[in-house]
């Protein structure tokens, strides 16, 4: 300890490789961080994982999971899956088109820098403000609607779909597309112009290039990005809750509902069970995504 405490001795580089390992107190330096993470990250996770198996009296039970088969939980699981899938696929396609348009321009151009940094911001943009933005534009009092209505195009004749699942999907695209750009652009950048030229010099045309070279190369990245977008939509809460305050169609809203309503008091494990359901689905999708991402990074 005396040697270690002497500032003139380089305490780290000089550590002998062989011989008796010196007793080190270095690990104390990370204790505050790990303690904090344990308290506010690990403990809540443990509370969910264990709490989902406990009933109101504190006894072990699988009841909470049986409640997942309640029709409204099943319905919101299905609805959430559908909305997430649709916005993931649509966001992926539109985001891929936008990425392609970017890549085809100058690599250091103003346009590219602008779109990329805007995407960085918009991919995080969600929640209440986003819902407001759509209400203020295409909502029943928004200027887009008023303008369209005044010109004989009333798109709310069959109900105000903005406050339903359709509208939620449209609003989700606002952050799904930028997220796709962020995730997919590096893959597109990895496509080397030589590959197209090599294809041409070997006798292939544009179709051959997309069918045999660019398509197969980009497909894993595209699929992976789509999965990420799915997980992103699946776990969103704030946007849905700010936009739709009746019916709570999304699974995340069911969690909030189970937590705050009287159900939470009588069935403390119920919200936890839905949370477990959500985390299982999101984790599954994320693992698939990282597998595909690994394959992409090997190629591009």
């Amino acid at each position: 300890m005396i040697a270690a405490g002497n500032p003139a001795v380089a305490t780290n580089v000089g550590r002998p490789l062989a011989g008796g390992r010196r007793f080190s107190l270095d690990w104390i330096g990370v204790v505050p961080f790990l303690a904090y993470a344990g308290l506010f990250l690990l403990l809540p996770s443990t509370i969910i994982a264990l709490g989902a198996f406990v009933n109101a009296d504190g006894a072990f039970t699988l009841e909470n999971y049986q409640h997942l088969s309640r029709s409204y939980v099943v319905k919101s699981t299905v609805d959430t899956t559908v909305i997430s899938a649709v916005t993931a696929v649509a966001g992926a396609i539109l985001g891929a088109l936008l990425s392609y348009a970017i890549v085809m321009g100058s690599p250091n151009g103003v346009l590219r820098r602008l779109v990329v940094s805007a995407s960085g911001v918009l991919a995080q943009f969600g929640g209440v403000t986003l819902a407001f933005a759509f209400i203020a534009s295409i909502g029943p009092a928004g200027f887009v609607y008023l303008f369209a209505q005044a010109h004989g195009f009333d798109y709310y004749t069959h109900g105000i779909w903005l406050f339903e699942r359709t509208g939620l999907g449209l609003v989700y695209l606002y952050f799904q597309i930028p997220l796709m750009v962020l995730v997919f652009l590096p893959a597109l950048d990895g496509i080397k112009p030589q590959w197209r030229e090599a294809t041409e010099s070997l006798g292939g045309n544009t179709w051959h290039y997309w069918r045999h070279v660019a398509g197969p190369l980009l497909f894993p990245a595209f699929l992976g990005a789509t999965l990420l977008l799915f997980a992103n939509a699946f776990s969103a809460y704030a946007t849905a809750n700010a936009l739709i305050n009746q019916g709570q169609p999304m699974l995340s809203q069911q969690i909030g509902g189970a937590l705050s309503s009287e159900v939470g008091a009588f069935e403390p494990g119920f919200a936890k069970a839905i949370a477990v359901e959500m985390i299982v689905i999101v984790t599954l999708v994320t693992v698939l995504y990282s597998l595909l991402q690994r394959r992409t990074s090997r190629w591009l």
Binding site: L41, L43, P44, S45, T46, I47, I48, G51, F234, S235, A236, Y237, S252, I255, G256, L259, A271, K272, A275, M278, I279, V282
Partner: peptide, 8 residues
């Protein structure tokens, strides 16, 4: 997801 964390 934040909504999961909040349950814990």
């Amino acid at each position: 997801p934040a909504i999961v964390l909040v349950v814990g």
